[in-house]
Amino acid sequence: MNAQAGTVPRRGTSLDSRLRATARSEWIKFRSVRSSPLALVAAALIVVVGAWLLGVGNRDSAAASPDSGAAFDPVFTVFQAIELAQLFIAALGVTTVTGEYASGLIRGTFLATPQRAQVLAIKALVFTVAVWACCTAMSYQAFFLGQAALSPAKHAGIGDPGVLTAVFGAGLYLTLIGLLGMFIGVLVRSTSAALISLFGLLVVLPIAFIEIPGKITKNLAEYLPDAGEQAFQLLHTGSYTLGPWQGLGVLAGYVAAAAVTAFALIVRRDA
């Protein structure tokens, strides 16, 4: 029996069933790494509890004079914790890829599915669906909790103009940040190098651009990846001219550039 099984030529798997099998294995890898649920839980705690803390902490400034009331953005105020939570989502995206390189599992993955571009596409798809669902859920919770904490003072309802976009945009923003981390992880293949370059891009560069005054830096600063943060702001203050969707578009552009490079390199390099 065994000998016969060995000689029978295997039929090539159909594209459809291969993609389904790849998706299943990528999902197993994603959920069984201990750090991925932990990173999502940490991000959710920061966003939701942070929204409540920021709401309570800013109740006074929300209730202050009508002048500052006009410049007060009840949505961004409670969503600021996203700037901290994004580090965890970014790290989740990075380790989804670099963890496999570190443990050597990536060789097994590519041996099982030599169509590397398909592996990466499915990996990105699984990641997007899981992270987007979690992040959108946490951004809705954060919104309602934060507004309840603000509530005696000026606060926003979900039906107010621009609010639904902002709440939806916050989830999209975090998902895009995670994807950026994932593709940078493919590019550098090392956890620490990927994290340092990603955090540099997200957190350090905007600060550096503020500290170096000048016309060029001012104009360029608007087109750094953190332009995506415009997505969850109602008031677009300062020198920023981008709206929520344009801001997300800039971030999506970075993700797309990283993705193109990642797809080009992953089929070429060793694992």
Binding site: S35, A81, L87, T191, S192, F199, V203
Partner: peptide, 18 residues
């Protein structure tokens, strides 16, 4: 490495900014 680097950025940079 991932958790440690993330904690450093959070503790030293993002938390005080927030």
């Amino acid at each position: 490495a991932a958790v440690a680097v993330t904690s450093m950025f959070g503790l030293l940079l993002v938390l005080p900014l927030m």
